[in-house]
């Protein structure tokens, strides 16, 4: 049973309308985004489902998952704090910000908090170089930017997410 096809039937229809009929492979990336958003990673099962939906091999889908950094094929934190430590941000203290935030969360860069909620990753330039230090949060609401951050403001976001989690 292709669970993914059932779950996203409406979205799939809309996606197929977007691309020429003989190029349904184009729907691979949007479908991966959908699955990632809902599960915070992409399981092998979902990869197989998506391959079937768009009519390519599961290896080809796995290849796409492997190439792009916003796709993850193993579970980590539910929310990924992706901190830009690239040049412009580094000139504005992003490296220090990363270290301080990790210390506050009691993890190493790349690690996940004990409650499994937050993974902190270092990423390349996010096109917000005038508003560093900053990070984006990849989670079930897609991706959102948090600019001109301090450890305090970042920890407040963490707190909000933890609260929200409790209520769910």
């Amino acid at each position: 049973m292709n669970q993914t096809a059932i779950k996203y039937a409406r979205e799939i229809e809309a996606l197929f309308a977007k691309y020429p009929e003989e190029h349904r492979q184009s729907a691979v990336m949007p479908l991966l985004h959908l699955v990632h958003q809902d599960n915070s990673f992409i399981s092998k099962h979902a990869i197989n489902d998506i391959a079937e939906i768009v009519g390519i091999s599961t290896t080809e889908v796995a290849s796409v998952v492997g190439f792009y950094t916003l796709y993850h094929d193993h579970p980590e934190g539910k929310y990924r704090f992706q901190i830009c430590t690239d040049l412009s941000c580094a000139l504005q203290g992003a490296d220090e910000f990363l270290r301080a935030l990790c210390a506050a969360l009691e993890i190493d860069p790349g690690g996940t908090t004990k409650d499994g909620l937050i993974t902190v990753e270092e990423v390349m330039c996010l096109a917000a170089c005038d508003k560093g230090p900053l990070f984006q949060v990849q989670g079930k609401d897609g991706i959102s930017y948090h600019e001109r951050q301090t450890v305090e403001s970042a920890m407040q976001t963490v707190q909000e997410l933890r609260e929200q989690e409790k209520h769910e």
């Binding site: 390519i56 091999s57 599961t58 290896t59 080809e60 796995a62 290849s63 492997g66 190439f67």
Partner: peptide
Amino acid sequence: DDPVIGFYQRGRNMEIITNS
């Protein structure tokens, strides 16, 4: 016409995988 092996990851990390 059996695309059952492919590249995984990129740059120097790129490696051959099969998912079939």
